[in-house]
Nucleic acid binder design. Structure first.
Length: 882
RNA sequence: GGGGCUAUAGCCCAGUUGGUUAGAGCGCUUGCUUGACAUGCAAGAGGUCACUGGUUCGAGCCCAGUUAGCCCCACCA
């Protein structure tokens, strides 16, 4: 190493993430570490990022989503794959347009004041601003995406893909235009699709209203939750089998107020049990009534307009707000003696997912995608396992939806979005659907053509994201190389909106699935377990957390202590725990680097001690667990394996054992310890890098012999497990040390005060103690250790028994007989219970006959150990009682 | 109405195909300026794994049912 190691290895005692993180992100990005053009020979690995909305900022859900993707990307990259993690943003039609409208409203302007062109220009400005913000935030999180290939759902390429898809579907008859009942949001002034309607349980009323027969022979009472729609009633329906009404079928009723003659008809849809068993039918304002209207050929009378006000068809109520009309109408019914009674009910009301305005079912001409034919292959792909949901249970949710799919209303009465590529001829009425603007009508050559004013649902372009971003419809290299992508990482609330639509779009246009795996993670909840939302104002800004604890700590917290698919509560103390772990790693390295100043890497392979072999075995095990769990998307388990290894094994035991070798050891011993520290940390840093990229990069650069980024280093793979004997040996050492520490604690002998140790052991245990005596004296803070096969136990001593080893800590004058007796009795009780359990098992014929031999053997092997312990402890107790 | 999820230590959660004495973290108790770290070290206390049955030699884990909570879907006006 040419670097001045003294200078290089000076580290603060507490890790300060802020500077470090900014520094390394800049370095990575500038040096092109994230580029998918690197490592051209590597097997491709591709993730397309779920594009965050340009109107918005990074929230905890994004942080979780992108942390997961980054971990997978970094891991695969270090494994040697050619990784493309493709970033992008979404134009988010309704959301963005609504925000811009709010913004200009502050100046007293509406979008109509500006006009379409100017309004869109404003929206683009807005997009630039928020786009910059959110991509900066993704960088702050540490996302290693290939920014050179960043896309936007409204960019030229994606727009072309959208037009291509629309035209193809149109030509195949899979897109059609028609007047159907759709969900209308009068605030957003647009239709929304069925899944954009949220059903909210609300308290409401059921008004029982009397509709007289036209011939004056009494009346039928109907129940309705929306009296204002009755102005558009064109029938009353009852169940055909309903005895109460059967004889009245075919008679005419006189719709009050409007004095319109409407039929009493029979329809299976009506439930005789509900209300009065008679339903008013308003085909223009209720989806069910719409269907009934079709069946019975009833007229559709639109009485509520797009502005939420009553139309001319509403007669004297025209122009009135619909809710006001409701009140007035009920009054009028009451005055006419036609209000039977009012009942309080609770019912589901449809609301706009964006603005929570109650949706108004309206009949209007809209564009739809015919879903049934597209759903079939999409169902098959998941059923056959070609596309795999992780966790698997989400495939059920997906399939349930796909199998009951309904046509998708894709037109939106907005300006911000992909314009529908359809033109209408002003002269002959021809409908022209093509990718580019036609010059003239192909039928009548007229030049008075007008483009459909509507734009497409945002999700129409999102549905194409896995291939439009790779260049489709062009046959680009990236498309060939990276499609189908490897995994889609997304939250479970978006399966219908997005995942499902990508699947059928990919299958239809690429003839191949868009991704192999769909990894679904849960939602971010606040500390109390409530969904984080703007309205509840309980969101925690990830950027605030990063400023306080660092991006590494946030990332680590997000992927640990949680199971795939389950929702995750945000808890600050868990971020602290993650921060502490990072600091622990920092200090472990700091310790090593303080002692590596004179280390010559690669000088010679040192002779390994038992502890060395033990830590290598444990490291190997941790690497195996980490990799296998990452393969299965068990990121939390993978991280935990590393956490446990580093803290509980490396720091708590190995580092302590290395100290005497470093401080007092002979040159070869010091060198061996240095070699081991460097080796274990080198692997640990690499294993941890995907989870906590910044701190590991910083520490990596201080490692002797290292000059390049950790991102270019190989990810450690687990080799075959070896050193089983050393693992068992170290296990024994640790148990003996714990036993001694336990005695000291009970008897109030602090670690600062040295004690003598007397051990009785035979055979292998004796050999191990022989070899590792120095470990034991060091870790148990003993002044001496005497080992014999057996002997006279010291009288004034604390005692314990571990795996055939009798342990005594002579403490003249410090033994409190009562305390010691209590301690031993407690130990003995545990031992007795275990022996009893073992005996029960080993006397069970069924167990012996049916359990696998290795399980039986394992249990049998414990028997002598516990028996010895029991014997030792009870003898000791008897001695004390004398 | 249909479907899904959750129920494990005081709190927040792990526990991967059934098989050591059910584990972390936080909190709690006790003791520590241990030549990396008090964002630390050591030793502890704390669990009838929601309930009831079943399958099995063996169940926190599998099956059935019950209870409680959360979520999604659904056209009963």
């Amino acid at each position: 190493m040419k670097n001045n190691s003294q200078e290089k290895n000076k580290l603060e005692s507490v890790y300060q993430p802020a500077q470090t993180e900014a520094k390394w992100y800049r370095y990575w990005e500038e040096s092109g570490c994230f580029s998918s053009e690197n490592n051209k020979e590597g097997e491709p690995f591709c993730i397309v990022m779920p594009p965050p909305n340009v109107t918005g900022q990074l929230h905890m859900g994004h942080a979780l989503n992108n942390a997961i993707q980054d971990i997978l990307s970094r891991w695969r990259r270090m494994q040697g794959r050619r990784v493309l993690w493709l970033p992008g943003t979404d134009h988010a039609g309704i959301a963005t347009q609504a925000r811009v409208e709010e913004h200009i409203a502050k100046d007293g302007l509406s979008k109509y004041d500006l006009g379409r062109e100017a309004f869109l220009a404003k929206t683009w400005e807005w997009k630039e601003r928020y786009h910059g913000r959110i991509t900066k935030q993704l960088r702050t999180l540490g996302c290693s995406c290939d920014w050179d290939k960043e896309r936007f759902t409204l960019d030229e390429g994606c727009s072309e893909a959208v037009r291509q898809v629309f035209v193809e579907l149109y030509n195949k008859g899979l897109i059609y235009r028609g007047s159907y009942i759709v969900n209308w949001c009068s605030k957003c002034q647009t239709t929304i699709s069925d899944i954009e309607v949220e059903h909210e349980e609300r308290a409401g009323h059921l008004w029982y209203l009397r509709y007289p027969f036209a011939d004056g022979s009494g009346f039928v009472t109907v129940a309705t939750s929306r009296p204002e729609t009755l102005l558009g009633d064109t029938g009353v329906a009852v169940h055909p089998e309903d005895e109460r009404y059967r004889h009245l079928l075919g008679k005419e009723l006189l719709l009050p107020v409007m004095n319109r003659r409407i039929p009493l008809l029979a329809d299976e849809y009506v439930s005789p049990e509900y209300g009065t068993g008679a339903v008013k039918v308003t085909p223009a304002h209720d989806p069910n009534d719409y269907e009934m209207g079709l069946r019975h050929d009833l007229p559709r009378i639109t009485v509520i307009g797009r502005d939420g006000k009553m139309t001319e068809e509403a007669g004297k109520y025209a122009g009135m707000d619909s809710l006001e009309c409701r009140a007035k109408l009920v009054e009028e019914f009451a005055a006419l003696g036609l209000l039977d009674h009012i009942e309080g009910i609770s019912h589901a009301v449809g609301e706009c997912y964006r603005c929570s305005t109650t949706v108004e079912p309206l009949v209007s001409p809209q564009w739809f995608v015919r879903m049934k034919p597209l759903a079939q292959p999409a169902i098959k792909a998941v059923k056959s396992g070609d596309i795999r949901f992780v966790p698997d249970r989400f495939s059920k949710i997906y399939l349930g939806w796909m199998e009951n799919i309904r046509d998708w209303c894709i037109s939106r009465q907005l300006w911000w979005g992909h314009r529908i590529p359809v033109w209408y001829c002003g002269d002959c009425g021809e409908v022209i659907c093509q990718k580019n603007e036609p010059e003239a009508c192909p039928r009548c050559a007229s030049r008075t053509l007008e483009q459909d004013p509507d734009v497409l649902d945002t999700w129409f372009s999102s549905a194409l994201w896995p291939f439009s971003t790779l260049g489709w419809p062009e046959e680009t290299e990236d498309l060939k190389r990276f499609y189908p992508t490897d995994v889609l990482v997304t939250a479970r609330d978006i399966i219908f909106f997005w995942v499902a639509r990508m699947i059928f779009s990919g299958l239809e246009f690429m003839r191949e699935k868009p991704f192999a795996d769909v990894f679904i993670h849960g939602l971010m909840l606040d500390a109390q377990g409530r969904k984080m939302s703007k309205s509840a104002n309980n969101g925690v800004d990830p950027i605030d957390v990063i400023e306080k604890y660092g991006a590494d700590a946030l990332r680590f917290m997000l992927v640990t202590g949680n199971t795939p698919g389950n929702d995750l509560r945000f808890a600050e103390e868990r971020v602290e725990a993650a921060r502490n772990f990072i600091n622990k790693l920092w200090n472990a390295c700091r310790f090593a680097y303080m002692n590596l100043g004179d280390y010559q890497p690669g000088a010679q392979e040192p002779a390994l001690t038992l502890a060395d072999k033990w830590i290598l075995a444990r490291l190997n095990r941790a690497a195996g667990l980490c990799n296998s769990n990452l393969e299965r998307y068990e990121l939390g388990e993978a991280a935990r394996a590393l956490y446990d290894f580093l803290w509980d094994e490396f720091c708590d035991w190995y580092v302590e054992l290395a100290k005497p070798r470093l401080y007092q050891g002979a040159p070869q011993e010091r060198h061996a310890a240095q070699f081991m520290l460097a080796e274990v940390l080198s692997q640990s840093l690499r294993l941890l890098h995907p989870f906590i990229p910044f701190v590991t990069e910083e520490l990596w650069r201080h490692l002797p012999g290292v000059e390049a980024s950790i991102m270019l280093a190989a990810y450690p793979q687990a080799g075959p497990q070896q050193y089983a004997a050393e693992e068992a040996g170290m296990q024994l050492v640790m148990e003996i040390v714990r036993a001694v520490r336990n005695i000291r604690m009970w008897l109030g002998v602090p670690l600062g005060k040295k004690v003598e140790l007397v051990l009785f052991a035979r055979a292998e245990a004796a050999a191990i103690i022989q070899e590792c005596g120095s470990y034991i004296t060091l870790l148990a803070q003993a002044s001496s250790l005497s080992l014999a096969a057996q002997g006279e136990p010291p009288a004034q001593a604390g005692a314990a028994h571990v795996r055939g080893v009798d342990i005594y800590v002579p403490l003249k004058g410090l033994i409190d007989i009562e305390k010691e007796t209590a301690r031993l009795e407690k130990e003995l009780a545990v031992c007795d219970a275990e022996l009893q359990r073992l005996a029960g098992k080993l006397n069970n014929e069924g167990f012996l006959a049916k359990a696998p031999p290795e399980v039986v053997e394992k249990e049998r092997a414990k028997l002598p150990e516990y028996a010895a312990k029991q014997k030792s402890l009870s003898e000791r107790l008897q001695m004390l009682k004398r």
